[in-house]
Design a protein around this nucleic acid. Structure first.
Lengths: 108, 108
DNA sequence: CTGAATCCGTGCCGATACTG
DNA sequence: CAGTATCGGCACGGATTCAG
């Protein structure tokens, strides 16, 4: 921890803390991961309902970034009408202990 | 975790994860806490140097919020010229394990 | 149903100047 | 030395509309 400066430490390496917080940062990513943390596949409009207050724009862009970072998986079933389900990944699940500790800390 | 929605869960309670991330959110709070995590008192202009890239405005406002949230302590020595030192608190130190885990996760 | 595209307001953050 | 005050840019996020 010591010596950590902004995104880059004086040694020139990227601070892993900042890297982590960038991946799950923003207003909606954690709420989305929380909803998916049950492990079940959840559809787009289900997420719209369960992540209270989120808009189309933010849900779509958040899902895209989360998938790009390997934190969720998108599965498309080519039925008619088209159906898509999102799943949480192992990488996200391995983050949960840290989130639990943070939440614990948030409760004082 | 499950059922967490934005800042408020459907049960009406505030999500402790969001509470935690709000306290240490923003661009500079974690870097500041990292520098202070050694436990030594550090002066204002020392922080300016050690937290690379931070401006007067952001350092002052970040310190004020961190103190308000009980994450740092401000100690003023009424010498001439005036001297101020900032210290990390127990509350911040209790956050470090979670930060360590997050950093670990950030390194994959 | 699952998004993409566009426009736009707000708030974070940076730069600069000033104060006790 | 240790901050405030003020202004402004820009990215994040919100609302609406459109598309496959």
């Amino acid at each position: 921890m010591s010596g950590c400066k902004a995104e880059h430490c004086p040694c020139g390496a990227v601070c892993p803390l900042q890297v982590a917080l960038k991946r799950i940062g923003g207003k909606w990513k954690i709420p989305i991961l929380c909803v998916l943390s049950s492990g079940e596949g959840i559809r787009y409009n289900e997420l719209m309902k369960k992540v209270t207050g989120i808009t189309n724009t933010m849900l779509a862009s958040s899902l895209k970034e989360l998938e790009k970072d390997g934190l969720i998986t998108r599965v498309q079933y080519n039925e008619m009408p088209i159906r898509v389900e999102y799943f949480i990944t192992e990488k996200s699940l391995s983050l949960m202990p840290a989130m639990q500790m943070l939440a614990q800390w948030g409760m004082e």
